[in-house]
C-alpha cells in the first residue's frame, strides 16, 4: 500500500464559538485526487486552510510524508510548504503584478530565480494551462474569470508541487469553461504525479476530477468512497446532497 502524501488526523477547529471541524480524518496518496464535498459553511475551506498551514487547528495532526507539520518550527514548516500548490476560489492573483510575475511569484521572491529565467518558466506554465503568452504582461484585472483560474493554476504548478489543493475550482464559471478547467486539473495531476485535494459543491466537477470523494458534514467526514460509487453510496447525507434535495437529514440554511 502506498504511504499517503498528506494525512489529516482528528482535525478540530472552533471559530467564533462554533465547532466547525470536529475530528476530520482524510488522506491522499501520490497521483490520486480526493474531492471533499459538502454544503456551504460546513468547513471545507477551513479544512483546506488547516492542511495548508494558513490556519492552526485546535487539535489533530497534519502529516506530510508522515511528519506532523503543526508541531514544526516556522522555518521548517515553510520548507515543507514548498511542496504545496494551491488554486484559490477567486484566483487570488496579486493586482499590483503582471500575469507572468504572478505566475512566477514563488520563483522570484522565494527561490531567487533571475527575472529572465522566471519569465521563461512562467510562459511555459501559461502554455501548459492553455493561456496564451500574449497575456503575460497584462494585469490580472484584464483577464476573464476563466483566464484568472488558468493563471492561478499556472502559479500553483510552476514549482512542480507534490500536493495540489483546489478551492472551488469551477465556481463562477460557465459550464464549458468549468469543464476545461476540470480537464486541466486532471492533466496537471497526471503530469506532475502529485496528490490532489479539492473542495467543491459542483457535483459535475467532483465526478470528473475525483478518484475518491469524501463528504463533510457537521465537522466530520460522514462518507468516503470511490467517485464511481457516489450514486450508490447508501449514505442518506450523500444521497440528499447528490440529488440536491431540500428534504433529508441535511438541513438547508436559508
Amino acid at each position: 500500500m502506498t504511504l499517503p502524501k498528506l494525512q489529516l488526523v482528528g482535525i478540530k477547529k472552533r471559530l467564533r464559538g462554533r465547532q466547525v471541524l470536529d475530528g476530520v480524518d482524510i488522506d491522499v496518496a501520490p497521483g490520486k485526487s480526493l474531492v471533499i464535498i459538502g454544503g456551504s459553511g460546513v468547513g471545507k475551506s477551513v479544512t483546506l486552510k488547516c492542511a495548508l498551514g494558513i490556519m492552526k487547528p485546535d487539535a489533530g495532526e497534519v502529516l506530510v510524508d508522515g511528519a506532523d507539520v503543526t508541531r514544526m518550527p516556522r522555518e521548517i514548516r515553510a520548507r515543507v510548504m514548498r511542496k504545496f500548490g494551491m488554486l484559490f476560489q477567486g484566483g487570488a492573483l496579486f493586482d499590483s503584478l503582471t500575469v507572468w510575475e504572478n505566475i512566477a511569484f514563488r520563483l522570484l521572491y522565494a527561490d531567487n530565480v533571475n527575472r529572465t529565467e522566471a519569465r521563461e518558466r512562467a510562459i511555459e506554465a501559461m502554455r501548459k494551462v492553455r493561456l496564451t503568452p500574449d497575456f503575460a504582461d497584462v494585469r490580472p484585472v484584464e483577464l476573464s474569470g476563466g483566464m484568472q483560474k488558468r493563471a492561478g493554476l499556472a502559479r500553483a504548478i510552476i514549482a512542480k508541487p507534490d500536493i495540489l489543493f483546489f478551492d472551488e475550482p469551477t465556481t463562477g464559471l460557465d459550464p464549458i469553461t468549468a469543464d476545461a478547467i476540470n480537464d486541466l486539473i486532471i492533466d496537471m495531476v497526471k503530469e506532475l504525479g502529485c496528490a490532489a485535494v479539492s473542495i467543491t459543491h459542483d457535483m459535475a466537477s467532483a465526478r470528473k476530477i475525483a478518484d475518491e470523494i469524501a463528504m463533510l458534514y457537521a465537522g466530520r467526514i460522514v462518507w468516503r468512497g470511490p467517485a464511481s460509487t457516489i450514486d450508490s453510496s447508501g449514505n442518506a447525507y450523500v444521497d440528499q446532497f447528490v440529488a440536491g434535495r431540500a428534504d433529508g437529514p441535511i438541513q438547508a440554511v436559508v
Binding site: 486552510k49 495548508l52 498551514g53 494558513i54 515553510a78 510548504m81 514548498r82 504545496f84 500548490g85 494551491m86 484559490f88 487570488a92 492573483l93 496579486f94 511569484f105 514563488r106 521572491y109 522565494a110 527561490d111 502559479r155
Partner: peptide, 9 residues
C-alpha cells in the same frame, strides 16, 4: 493567504 502558500512571508 496565497502569498503564504507561495513560500513568502
Amino acid at each position: 493567504d496565497a502569498m503564504a502558500t507561495l513560500s513568502t512571508d
